[in-house]
Design a protein around this nucleic acid. Structure first.
Ligand SMILES: NC(=O)c1ccc[n+]([C@@H]2O[C@H](COP(=O)([O-])OP(=O)(O)OC[C@H]3O[C@@H](n4cnc5c(N)ncnc54)[C@H](O)[C@@H]3O)[C@@H](O)[C@H]2O)c1
Ligand SMILES: NC(=O)c1ccc[n+]([C@@H]2O[C@H](COP(=O)([O-])OP(=O)(O)OC[C@H]3O[C@@H](n4cnc5c(N)ncnc54)[C@H](O)[C@@H]3O)[C@@H](O)[C@H]2O)c1
Lengths: 213, 213
DNA sequence: TTTCATTTGTGAACATTTTAACAAACTTGA
DNA sequence: TCAAGTTTGTTAAAATGTTCACAAATGAAA
């Protein structure tokens, strides 16, 4: 029941991303194929659910054998669109921004931090993990020149929305935002938001009510 | 249609957490009540959905008027279990751990970082944002003495699972884990996991396929 | 080659979640 | 006090997501 990528349920895409993460690890070992049962044990997803997710993107498994890991990885990465390197920028090099610059696995996940920007003069010019922090005013020329479409925002909550507006106006299309607020973007732009604290609040709820998920 | 808390759909709980975040901001302004229509505009959730979520936890709205913000906040916080201060520890004071210690809004969200632990001698003894970093070996006595039930883990991916095992064995019940791996916990323990990179991968997919959510 | 044990892909049943619609309840202002 | 306007809580229908169960396909062993 192969569908066009845009018709794959969002929730299946989210699981595909999870499968990929686990497959990447498997592919470093001496295993070359994996069954939905085994992948299910690794990911905590029911095998039938995995097979259905994978059926949306084509038929890549062999009965009695399972899925070839490398082939499956390639297919998932193609569907998600991370089969080629994604170059992104980081705006706001504070606590979170600096942690992101120091993250070691960007390349393994298919990303490259092409540039980092902060308006604080004390941060400008610093080189963190090989990435130079530039002045905030350089961001628009930079992304235009480098053809960057995605920005990660780790700016103070109060200024994040206006920063998004400014970047969207300058042609930025995707925003990954760490501020715990609901962000508006103009048409043709897309935003993903994480609130790093919400899952902790959910954990408190689960603990209190003994909910195992 | 009031249910026991444990029967409120998980997805409604997640939205309650979102509502709370927005209500907290509203409560700082001069507004005292809010309708599902207005809250819907703020949160990007359809009003009917909001009313249904709230109906699971009781009837707190007045027709023709809306919901009293303070009352609603109290109810949501009671349901989630964050009506009293939650004391947690941070294990692993690297990039993420340090960012967490520096986060300014813990108190506003109902949390307190009661302690921080790292095994690196260079970090031990440092005081970050008023929180002393202790040696890793002190963690079990500390949590026993202080009655801490929840740990935030920002340790290197390779050691996170074993750290969870150790803490679970020592009586820790809830784990909030930043390593991008699936974590196993013994019965009676609960884990929430975030992979800070996955949402970015999802953003790439949405951008490629023009999916507005 | 044949048999046996696996495992896929999928249709159908089941479960959950969202949405629309509206009577009833409340506020406001005349 | 009453009428007009607003907004809730709830029902039922629609939409979406999960799980089951099994025929068909394949690999592996004899
Ligand atoms: N630190 C955490 O653990 C944590 C946890 C949850 C959420 N958050 C959220 O993440 C966001 C970032 O948090 P943080 O702790 O890294 O903040 P931070 O204050 O440490 O860093 C913000 C950085 O943005 C820079 N900045 C300010 N205005 C700018 C501009 N116009 N252009 C470019 N850079 C600018 C500042 O100079 C600073 O370096 C905040 O919205 C915060 O609420 C952080
Ligand atoms: N940095 C990021 O932006 C980022 C992004 C995505 C995911 N993550 C994940 O978050 C986790 C933490 O990342 P990080 O960048 O903060 O790592 P980090 O290496 O900067 O910090 C890890 C800290 O844990 C300490 N540690 C090691 N063993 C310990 C032990 N047994 N007990 C206590 N402390 C111990 C180390 O001394 C170090 O200070 C990793 O799993 C990483 O993959 C980080």
């Amino acid at each position: 029941m192969k569908r066009k990528p845009s018709e794959v349920p969002h929730i299946s895409i989210e699981r595909l991303i999870l499968y990929r993460r686990c497959l990447l690890k498997l592919s470093c070992s001496e295993v070359f194929h994996v069954s939905s049962a085994v992948l299910g044990r690794i990911t905590n997803v029911k095998p039938a659910n995995i097979r259905k997710d994978l059926s949306y993107v084509g038929e890549y498994g062999k009965p009695g054998y399972g899925y070839e890991i490398d082939k499956l990885l390639a297919v998932i990465e193609k569907i998600i669109g991370i089969n080629k390197l994604q170059r992104v920028i980081v705006v706001g090099v504070g606590n979170i921004g600096e942690a992101l610059l120091c993250y070691q696995d960007w390349a393994a996940r298919g990303f490259e931090i092409a540039g980092a920007f902060d308006k604080d003069r004390r941060k400008m010019g610093r080189v963190i993990n090989g990435i130079e922090v530039r002045g905030d005013s350089e961001v628009l020329p930079f992304v235009k020149k480098e053809g960057i479409e995605i920005a990660i925002l780790a700016t103070p909550t109060e200024i994040t929305q206006s920063k998004v507006n400014e970047l969207a106006h300058g042609g930025m299309r995707g925003f990954y935002v760490f501020s715990p607020i609901v962000i508006d973007v103009p048409g043709g732009c897309y935003v993903e938001n994480i609130d790093m604290i919400s899952p902790l609040e959910f954990l408190v709820y689960r603990l209190k009510n003994k909910i195992s998920k």
